[in-house]
Simulated assay, not measured.
Amino acid sequence: MQPSPAEVARTLAAGRLSGNAHIACRPGPYRVRHATDRAGRVLMLVPADSDLTRALRPTDGADDIAVVLDVPDVPPVAGSPSLGRVWVSGWAVALDGAEAREAALDFADCDPTGDLLDVGESQVLYRMEPAEVRLERAGGTVEVDPDEYAAAEPDPLHHIEWDLLTDLADHHVPEMTGFIERQLAGSGHTAPAGPTPRVVRLDRYGFVVTLGPPPAEYRVRLAFPRPVEDRADLARLLHPVLCRHCGSPTTTA
């Protein structure tokens, strides 16, 4: 098991990575603070007196304006493969009143910045309905159905992935090395000679592990028996991995 393109797109767009706003017939791109609500709609928090706010003003009496948000992945540790880059296109509209207050609560779920208290004064919240979603990765582009994107959930471990990988690398190398070797042996493979295997990505579906010496290194995925729900759920699932006598919770994929 591994994340679907829609899940990767939702994870990248969630708001924990820096994004850029592109607006037709305007200079740019503009760096923008953003988040997504439960339906995957993009929320942009913009200073009222800024170039971006001026660029977002609709023309010809329209209420909204076409915007493209692009968000590239930032691999958590050296040697981690990138999840790619998501492009979300749609129409953005400035919010006020009850809509702005509700959107501010959604934004705070991702980033509880104090600037949300100034929405309607020194800050403006914009909401964009996704009309097109594209995911760039591995040298290609995948068109993601907007409905599938809206129905997907961001990975619950993405925002703590660096912490988890660092903890494994600093405190659990022998246990993880033994576990990876046992998993490979159980699937009829032998761990290659060379550097110690390294966990380079982690998501709700499992690990990505780098094996072998450069330049012949390669990656394998070790899948969990089920998707994990949060950090506490991951801790319960990893306990047998880090305690050899407790058994093995994962399989190779």
Rank of each mutant, 00 (worst) to 15 (best):
Q2R: 13
P3H: 00
A6H: 11
E7K: 12
E7M: 03
L12T: 02
L17A: 06
S18L: 13
A21M: 09
R26I: 08
P27Y: 07
D37I: 10
A39W: 11
G40C: 06
R41W: 06
L45E: 13
P47V: 07
D49F: 02
P58F: 01
D60I: 10
G61F: 07
I65Y: 02
V68R: 15
V71W: 01
V74S: 13
P76C: 11
P81D: 07
L83E: 04
L83I: 01
G84W: 02
S89L: 10
S89Q: 15
S89Y: 13
A94C: 00
D96M: 01
G97Y: 00
A98N: 05
A100C: 07
L105E: 13
F107E: 01
F107Y: 15
A108E: 07
L116A: 08
L117M: 12
S122D: 13
L125H: 05
R127Q: 15
L135M: 01
E136L: 14
G139V: 11
D145R: 05
D147K: 08
D147Y: 07
E148M: 12
Y149C: 06
A151I: 01
A152E: 05
P154F: 10
P154D: 01
D155Q: 00
D155M: 05
H159Q: 13
E161K: 01
E161Q: 13
L164V: 13
L165P: 03
L168T: 02
A169D: 15
H171V: 02
V173S: 10
G178I: 05
F179W: 15
A185I: 02
A185C: 08
S187H: 14
G188Y: 02
H189F: 13
P192I: 07
P195M: 04
P195R: 11
P197G: 11
R201I: 08
R201T: 09
R201H: 03
D203W: 06
Y205E: 09
F207N: 05
P214Y: 11
P214E: 14
Y218L: 10
R219K: 03
R221V: 09
A223L: 11
F224G: 11
E229N: 02
D230L: 06
D233T: 04
L234P: 03
L234G: 08
A235G: 12
A235R: 14
R236E: 15
C243N: 15
H245F: 09
H245I: 05
G247Y: 09
P249F: 08
P249N: 02
T250P: 10
T252N: 02
